[in-house]
Design a protein around this nucleic acid. Sequence first.
RNA 1: GGUCUCUUGACCGAGUGGCUAGGUACCGGUCUGCAAAACCGUUUACUCCAGUUCGAAUCUGGAAGAGACCUCCA
Length: 495
Amino acid sequence: MDSKLIIYNTLSRQKELFRPLNAPYVGMYVCGPTVYGDAHLGHARPAITFDVVFRYLKHLGYKVRYVRNITDVGHLEHDADDGEDKIAKKARLENLEPMEVAQFYTDRYHAAMDRLNVLHPSIEPHASGHIIEQIELVQKILDAGLAYESNGSIYFDIRKYQEQTKKYGCLSGRAIEDQLSTTRELDGQDDKRASSDFALWKKAAPEHIMRWNSPWSVGFPGWHTECTAMGTKYLGENFDIHGGGMDLIFPHHESEIAQQTAVTGHGPCKYWMHNNMITINGKKMGKSLGNFITLDEFFSGSHKDKDGNEMLEKAYSPMTIRFFILQAHYRSTVDFSNEALQAAEKGYSRLMQAYKTLGSLQASKTSSVDISKYTSNCYDAINDDFNTPIVIAHLFEAVKTINSVHDKKDTLTQADIDELKRLFDVFAFDILGLTDESASDNAAVVNGLMDMILDIRAKAKANKDWTTSDAIRDKLKEIGITVKDGKDGATWSIE
RNA sequence: GGUCUCUUGACCGAGUGGCUAGGUACCGGUCUGCAAAACCGUUUACUCCAGUUCGAAUCUGGAAGAGACCUCCA
């Protein structure tokens, strides 16, 4: 368990050796989705990034408790409808119970994540189920003298916090003094003493339909309290890893640190990890810009942007999306394009094809290729801050070897073949979380049918009846099955 | 305006002070009735300027361009 895992910690802006606080236990909290809309490609990034972290930590033998929240209380809507949260707004528009909306999108989020082969977190707490914990947190911050009540709402007192700790800004690196002196006027800030103060509890306006009782007013919790309250409840006051998208560093994670520090004197975790954004035409893919493509749209291949242009040339399978994301390092931006996705699709299918080929390789007495480094190379790459593109590059070295042996240009012993199989099982499937999409439930039936069809075609070929053999191949192509003739007979694959 | 980050070949994307990642595409070849696949080979790089160095795409300084955050956002 004494691994050499290195993690880039946003807090120190450095790569650090991963040392759990209480090995072999590891606690990890990742900010989950706000369930008021369908998950888009951007949501897949943190889900897959931290899925790999989760999988690798477990692979190393740690007992990981992975908490990923569902934000179903919404956050404040900035513009027009002051004080109304996103879910409430959507609910009013669609004339539904807020929880109906949240449930609907939660289910859809889960379905999309399942297709991406993202493991379920250990605990997936709902913000709405932890209102009491959040109220308790607010009370503790009030007791510590670092919050104040104003018109039934409670605000975090940044100025006072800063006097005592000088810590606000430690994660995002921004100088809070600049913000304290800012003169910018923001809507609905009249109750605050300073514009940088953030809400811990917000009194609900009459039209606000998501509301709970509290000692201060009927209202709803502030923007950042759920993660602090639920993280503490399930992982303790100090846990190992807190993750999320880079766009959450400020103000969300900065404020989480402030809330936790106000109560305990220290931040919530040891390592902060942040994944970068997915861009489209060089711009961040996000809700606010309206330039997002949902995961379901990728899977079905149809999407219209706001000008009615079709952005997707074809459908992209869940594993294509997963492979595409893993081909970039999680701290780099990754740019969406049809060309890039199609490249990923081809690469992914070549990887899977090689794994199948591996199962049918003939062992030799000696190996002409030295494969001893492949596994250690993969470990080195994943240990270096989860460098999945390098892991994939090493897997492709193995692909090259497998194909070369299959073509009888190289040889491998049975032990080496087994070693390669283990390499794929561990890295491609267990850690990167890829699955072979062509392997379906009724595969046995399809295999049998295909054997029969190809047998007929082989006989036609033997009789030089090219009309028949080509007709079979063309017809199969039409229904999405590609036939390839090789030296030892034909093989086939489903597109 | 403030804080921070990035700029690699046709495209996507790693990485490193000297030994040209990887994928996709393209081109040539092997194979094949044809095609595809597979394999082999080839081509195209490190935004610009100056400095440090025996040597920089990699370090330092400057310029240009792009992006993120500062407001809900993964």
